[in-house]
């Protein structure tokens, strides 16, 4: 198995073709949207999805920054540096062959010189619970990423505090991140852990609820409150400001309640690669 080639092929596809879970929510929203402006936006989005699939042009010119979570197989010895190399090689090759825009600058404040490669990839590592090697990518566009935020709530703020914070963050985002949005919410841990959880939440199949019914209820309530904001598709008003809300949690400190929001635009581009332990 050539891991870099496998990654390349998934990333070539991801920049033009939405995962089926995301596309099906967009099409459902078009059927249900009642605002005429919102419907016009969704109609153009669907037209765009069809055109990108039938051509070699990406869905969106902002092909994003490569974000990657590698889950290492439990109980197996793997060469981590080989995986890191394959991730970067695969991403570089896909950026070339699938006509990604070069959107990464080498240094953030002074020269902002373009790397012309879309590298480096932002890579996070963790242990998997199974013996599979799993690699997930987000093509993280920055119109939406600029609307992502972390807030440190009081430990006593509870469910209402979380709802108010998330709804306020989405309200600040408004029409900027290309709604209807896909939202990832990370709750708990430390400031950085909450941020990472919010990205991980975006990896879950869109529309699928949290296994804990309390958090599933919280996702539902956030979905309802956010869609009552009347941001609507494209920010032109309507029912669908977001298409899914997914929450991930982690234990936290007695003194805190970190809440992070990762915003994805409607073009919720992802790639998933899983390799069984015995194939490694």
């Amino acid at each position: 198995m050539n891991l870099a080639l496998r990654i390349r092929s998934e990333l070539e596809k991801a920049v033009r073709i939405l995962p089926p879970d995301c596309e099906s929510l967009i099409r459902k929203a078009y059927e249900k949207e009642v605002s005429p402006y919102g419907r016009t936006v969704l109609k153009n989005i669907i037209l765009n999805i069809d055109k990108a699939r039938a051509s070699s042009v990406p869905l969106c010119q902002d092909c994003g920054m490569f974000w990657c979570l590698v889950r290492l197989p439990a109980g197996r010895c793997v060469d981590v540096s080989m995986i890191e190399k394959a991730v970067n090689e695969g991403a570089l090759a896909a950026a070339e062959s699938a006509f990604y825009r070069r959107s990464v600058v080498a240094e953030p404040v002074f020269s902002r010189q373009n790397t012309n490669t879309n590298l480096p990839v932002v890579i996070h590592w963790e242990m998997n619970t199974s013996d599979e090697l799993e690699i997930d990518f987000l093509l993280k566009g920055f119109g939406s990423e600029n609307c992502s935020q972390v807030r440190m709530l009081r430990p006593t703020d509870g469910e209402d505090g979380v709802i108010d914070a998330v709804v306020d963050m989405v309200s600040q985002a408004g029409g900027k991140p290309c709604p209807p949005m896909f939202l990832g919410v990370g709750i708990g841990g430390t400031m950085d852990k909450a941020a990472l959880l919010s990205k991980k939440a975006l990896l879950r199949q869109a529309g699928k609820s949290h296994p804990d019914e309390r958090y599933a209820g919280l996702e539902k309530e956030l979905f309802r409150r956010i869609n009552a904001l009347d941001i609507g598709p494209g920010g032109l008003g309507g029912v669908f400001s977001c298409l899914s809300v997914a929450i991930e949690t982690f234990p936290t400190h007695i003194a805190g309640l970190p809440v992070a929001l990762s915003v994805n635009c409607w073009a919720d581009r992802k790639a998933h690669i899983a390799i069984r332990g015995d194939e490694l």
């Binding site: 009642v34 029912v239 298409l243």
Partner: peptide
């Protein structure tokens, strides 16, 4: 500025 459509029944769409 353009005005958003009025009378949107937001409660009609709790889920997708």
């Amino acid at each position: 500025h353009f005005e958003k459509a009025r009378d949107i029944p937001f409660d009609a769409c709790f889920s997708l």
